[in-house]
Design a protein around this nucleic acid. Structure first.
Length: 195
DNA sequence: GCAGGGATTTTCT
DNA sequence: GAAAATCCCTGCG
């Protein structure tokens, strides 16, 4: 048996708790002819209330629709004209909260990731949300799928990591909220700001 | 190692 | 029409 039960329990916790609990978990992306995977080392929580930088803040739209689905739904959005970013939806149906996967430590399918990312360096393969999506081969086609029946598989972590907390990156609203979490000391964490 | 700015298009005001 | 949950290249030192 895998830890499916654990994963379900994890996904149904409050969003901030999920953002922390996802650290150390392995995420596997499988396709017809490919398999890439990594351990989540950095996340950010996006809430529905009092969080002006959340895509759900102004209500449901065509773009953010999947963010209002049940926990474990995959929310992929397109941004800055060229990038995709991966989120795991949290909170009850209709609420609109999610956890952005910002960085991972590559564990499998390194050769394919290097091809997709056009770089050889392991530390640059999955550093940054758009890099994560690119390394895993994700696109808008994955938006709205669910972690239990899509191409993405989430595995429970074996050890509880030491977690550090800071402010989120790349936003202009609600900049003071401490909703960014990462594994202390991981060389795969994104951004130059470690606080 | 770090700061600055361009790319590129969808989405919402 | 402006902004955007970003990345990468450049220049500097």
């Amino acid at each position: 048996m895998t830890g499916m039960k654990d994963i379900n329990a994890l996904l149904n916790m409050p969003t901030i708790a999920v953002a922390q609990a996802l650290l150390g978990c392995e995420l596997v992306s499988t396709g017809p002819d490919d398999k890439t995977s990594g351990i989540i080392v950095e996340t950010e929580a996006y809430l529905s209330q009092d969080d002006a930088s959340s895509h759900a803040f102004r209500g449901q739209t065509k773009r953010n629709g999947s963010m209002f689905s049940r926990p474990g739904t995959v929310y992929v959005y397109f941004t800055y004209g060229k990038h995709f970013c991966l989120n795991i939806v949290t909170g009850p149906v209709g609420v609109g909260e999610a956890v952005l996967i910002r960085a991972m430590e590559p564990t499998g399918g390194l050769d394919l990731m290097q091809k997709r990312r056009q770089t050889e360096q392991p530390q640059l393969l999955m550093r940054g949300p758009a890099c994560v999506a690119q390394a895993l081969g994700l696109s808008l086609a994955d938006n709205g799928t669910h972690i239990e029946d899509g191409r993405l598989l989430l595995l429970p972590r074996r050890k509880t990591p030491l977690i550090q907390t800071g402010v989120r990156i790349g936003i202009t609203k609600a900049q003071d909220l401490p909703l960014r979490f990462w594994i202390k000391g991981s060389p795969f964490v994104s951004g130059s700001r470690k606080v």
